[in-house]
């Protein structure tokens, strides 16, 4: 049975993608679609804009979004409900501990303690919140493009 399209579903889980809009975020929603000829499901990506006045969603976050009773604009059809998984700062839902790749943060820290922590090493507790390198060294919050014109000015988003 074919699923209703993403725009018609009341609640969705999407991945935030770069978006220039002031009060909205863009989400990539991946769902499986049945090919009736092959009787096989194939991944299909749809893009949805959700109202996000405080811009709490950052690129890469997995966010729960909810359909608005009435469309806000032609594009904005949903509202952000909750950031489920912030990117690069995962909490294990079973134990409630922070996770890095395949290990718990506590475990990594305790191993470091055994060897003796270094002075200038990275400290998770003292690190500033995500986004302090935005527009400086980290350009993942914008959609980059291939440089097409040499205007003589600095073009930070061109690759």
């Amino acid at each position: 049975m074919a699923l209703p399209t993403a725009a018609k579903t009341s609640m969705l889980l999407g991945r935030c993608v770069p978006c220039l809009k002031q009060n909205a975020s863009k989400f990539k929603i991946k769902r499986l679609e049945l090919d009736t000829n092959l009787l096989m499901y194939f991944g299909k990506e749809e893009f949805v804009y959700a109202h996000d006045p405080n811009k709490i969603c950052k690129t890469g976050d997995i966010v729960l979004i909810e359909q608005l009773p009435t469309k806000m604009t032609r594009l904005i059809t949903h509202a952000v409900k909750k950031v489920v998984y912030p990117m690069g700062d995962i909490t294990d839902p079973v134990t409630g501990k922070k996770v890095v790749a395949g290990k718990y943060r506590d475990f990594v820290d305790s191993v470091n303690k055994v060897y003796g922590e270094k002075e200038g090493a990275f400290k998770y507790d003292k690190a500033p919140p995500r986004g302090w390198q935005e527009d400086k060294k980290d350009f993942t919050h914008v959609q980059t493009y291939i440089k097409y014109h040499d205007s003589g000015k600095d073009d930070p988003y061109a690759v």
Binding site: G88, D89, V100, A127, R130, W132, K137, D138, F139
Partner: peptide, 28 residues
């Protein structure tokens, strides 16, 4: 990968080693 695993460490590393990270454009 590091960005996906541990964002804060990723940002700290960019600053420490003076590297700029730009994601690849959508399509070539």
């Amino acid at each position: 990968y590091l960005r996906r695993w541990d964002y804060k460490r990723f940002e700290w590393l960019l600053e420490a080693l003076k590297i700029v990270y730009k994601p690849p454009p959508d399509h070539f």
